[in-house]
Design a protein around this nucleic acid. Structure first.
Lengths: 225, 225
DNA sequence: TTATTTATGATAGCGTTACTATCTTTTTAT
DNA sequence: ATAAAAAGATAGTAACGCTATCATAAATAA
């Protein structure tokens, strides 16, 4: 008997819950594969339908458009990651150790989680790096925000911000530092692999360097508060 | 007699140099207005052509596609900003003062520069904030990078990285800190205005807070090296 | 000045994308 | 066994991304 991890998603993101049917789960699974393969701009519902072996209309019964599908899988990732963080930092008393653990989880390639059968977290992590910010860098951001589509991301930032405050109660910018760490965990990774001269890790493309950079950044900053 | 600022752009970005003709300059001017208005996804060459009072084919004679046009105006901005930075930090000896000046320039709304007649820098700054990262967050990033389309951005990062090193010669991550400052100058601005709970400036949406945050971040970090 | 590039305008067309609609068949629940 | 729900099949439409062609106007060279 294996535990299955179920994540309750915002109902406004879909027309029909993809977790409940074979086709729905296939949509999630294959869209993660195809977005990772083609990038979001070149990804279409037609390609997705062909890949699954269904038709476009089948996809549209689950998701209104590809933007909402992107937000869905990204929100799913943030939910899953928050769970990982809560789980893996549970019972750690020292907030500094906790914070280091979180930075590690954010900046290190995730392995596929067996308890989520149709989601490949490793591919999803790649999508977060390359496409993550496209979820909110749009003209509909206010609208999407009203529907609470970014709640999982905000919650994760809040969790991280609180750990920062635990480490350094007087630090004045815990939320902004949290978003900085989260975004930079991904941007430095993207730069390292694609525009290496923008980083200090180009010669030795190793994620552990990003962790070192972020640790130095965060702990120097909050120590100074 | 007024000085006109001319920026020499990478020739691979366009089919015909937009700076040389009335139509070309109109393409730049109106595309800045329309991208700021619609956002990049909803921006099309058809809308641009209608706005100018020309036809799609007219646009295509200058730019292969809207992605290259976006890269063009973004690269233009980085060139212009680097010039501003070089100019405004010239003769400043103290690297700490210099660095503060640069952070200010990065994180503060720019006013329209009179010496560039057909470019509205203020609108362009808004585009950088919302669309800037879409220039490189694509599957063609390697290809585009080979053509040196990101050279202006890289140069700016190098300039900033060198000032950081001047302040703190032993600091180990000058480039990554430079990209962090540049990206966060924009992301914190976007968050402050659109997803305020992700920042510590939601109640008082003032850019000067972002400057304070970035100053604290940078100087704490490099002091610690 | 005429001849000739060069830039622009006008129109057409083609394949794809994003999306809606309808109708049939299959699966599932009662 | 029957009703309801989900999926498959097919069609269609407006917009988008892009190419091609031909005519005309403006700039420039002979």
């Amino acid at each position: 008997m294996k535990l299955q991890l179920q994540i309750k998603m915002n109902e406004g993101l879909f027309l029909r819950n993809p977790e409940n049917t074979e086709l729905g789960r296939n949509i999630i699974k294959h869209s993660i594969q195809l977005i990772a393969q083609y990038g979001f701009e070149e990804f279409t519902f037609k390609k997705l339908a062909d890949d699954i072996g269904t038709t476009e209309s089948g996809i549209y019964r689950y998701f209104e458009n590809k933007h909402l599908l992107l937000i869905y899988i990204i929100a799913w990732y943030w939910c899953w990651l928050e769970y990982q963080i809560i789980f893996q930092t549970n019972n750690i008393i020292d907030p500094v150790v906790k914070l280091k653990k979180v930075i590690n989880l954010l900046a290190t390639t995730v392995e596929d989680d067996e308890s989520t059968s149709y989601v490949n977290e490793s591919l999803l992590h790649q999508i977060i790096i390359s496409e993550g910010s496209k979820a909110y860098l749009t003209k509909q951001v206010a609208e999407d925000n009203k529907h609470q589509f970014f709640k999982p991301y905000k919650e994760l930032c809040a969790v991280l911000g609180n750990i920062i405050l635990e480490c350094s109660p007087k630090y004045k910018y815990p939320r902004s530092l949290a978003t900085t760490v989260i975004e930079m965990a991904h941007f430095q990774n993207f730069f390292m692999n694609n525009l290496p001269s923008l980083t200090d890790f180009g010669h030795n493309k190793n994620e552990s360097n990003i962790v070192l950079f972020l640790n130095d950044l965060v702990f120097s900053t909050i120590k100074n508060a």
